[in-house]
Simulated scan of single mutants.
Amino acid sequence: MSRPATADVTPQPAAEPLLRATDIRQHFPVRRGFFKPNAYVKAVNGVSFDLMEGETFGLVGESGCGKSTLGRTLLRLIEPTDGACFYRNENIFEKTQAEFGKYRRELQMVFQDPYSSLNPKMRVGSILEEAMTIHGIGTRKERTDRVIDLLETVGLSSEHYFRFPHEFSGGQRQRINLARALSLTPKVVVCDETVSALDVSIQAQVLNLMKRIRKEFDLSYLFISHDLGVVKYISDRIGVMYLGNLVEVATSKELFEAPKHPYTQALISALPKTNPKIDKQRIKLSGEVPSPLNPPSGCCFHTRCPHATDICRKVVPTSRTISGTHKAACHLYEDNV
């Protein structure tokens, strides 16, 4: 009798991340004289994460935690202090400005303020064509045709081509910013508080537009926001930042159903109750956020953590896998604690 065929159980290699940030640091010097700096503001202090192709990775935290600085550093709008950023396995931090130029087409950003991020003296058509002109893409007619297509893609029309930014509402201006980011056919778009300046109803429209665009243009988003509800709605995975450090990373579902880090638990407990029948206990944090100019020793959160012990005050916790892709940098989950 012939032996039945067995299924192929050869393990498949894990997909490589499209963008990998490794130990990113952004320290700004504080000078009190004309010579060497006396101290450094540690805005980003050793952040590592992966962004997979087609994924939306949300980055959330309190104002001043360094999330926007991290986004700008990844795109080299601010030169990094240390660390590496691999895009398609190429460390873009090692490239010269001339070499990095070819990557700028694939790495774009949508800024927070829909008003100041558009040149008030330029018509919308010229704003959207500018980047294509700089990179030598297409003829003048081809660029104009593409701009009209992009305007229609983001919910505007060809008649908006000749208008100035002041003739648009905040939501429309953010749609223009999205169209500008798409003009160079990017693969990664960093969205820095993209909807925070918009009304709630307009936020929903722009978020739904972004989700549709992601599928249509095969994009990956790094979505930065302080709003947990917004991040939950749009993100596949979420990273939580505190005082320049990434303290927890998990899928959106895992993070909201079973947060592990005490800081994440406090953030989620502050969300409004969606079910009045469920008794939800609010976790109140004591004290103020320490200054990034003089961060605490050990765990950066120990000064406000209700579970802090001696080891938290002395030793910096490493990011530890809790389950699957769920990671937390907390001594509570270390075997020796």
Rank of each mutant, 00 (worst) to 15 (best):
I176D: 00
N91F: 11
A179G: 07
T22N: 07
C191I: 06
V247E: 01
D113Q: 09
R143C: 10
V44Q: 04
M109C: 08
N177E: 03
L156V: 13
Y333C: 08
R88G: 00
S48Q: 11
C85W: 00
C65E: 03
N336Y: 09
A328P: 01
E254D: 15
E248F: 05
T144R: 15
A15C: 06
R25D: 01
N177V: 01
S116W: 07
T321Y: 02
Q108T: 12
V44W: 03
T144H: 14
T321I: 14
P11H: 10
Y221H: 06
V230S: 03
G155V: 11
E193W: 04
M1K: 13
P296L: 11
E53A: 15
P186H: 12
K260C: 14
I92S: 05
V337N: 13
E106A: 13
L255M: 14
Y221G: 00
K95W: 01
L75P: 07
A84N: 14
T309N: 12
A308N: 05
V30I: 14
Y103N: 08
G64D: 12
V110G: 01
N275E: 13
S157P: 04
Y103G: 02
V206N: 04
L118C: 13
V195F: 04
I278W: 00
E94R: 12
L332G: 06
S183A: 15
R282F: 10
S48H: 09
C312M: 08
E53H: 09
A14R: 14
R76S: 11
R72K: 15
E90I: 12
D236A: 02
A39V: 04
C191R: 02
E79M: 10
R31H: 14
S126C: 02
I202D: 03
N45A: 10
F93A: 03
R212C: 00
F93E: 01
G54Y: 04
H166L: 02
Q205Y: 08
I322Y: 07
D227N: 15
D192V: 10
S63E: 08
F49I: 11
M132L: 07
S220D: 05
P276F: 06
G287P: 05
Q203F: 02
S220N: 08
A308H: 03
M241G: 01
L19V: 13
E257H: 12
S48T: 14
E62V: 07
L18K: 11
E254N: 14
G83S: 09
G155F: 10
S286I: 05
Y87E: 07
N275W: 02
R214I: 06
A5Q: 12
S286Y: 01
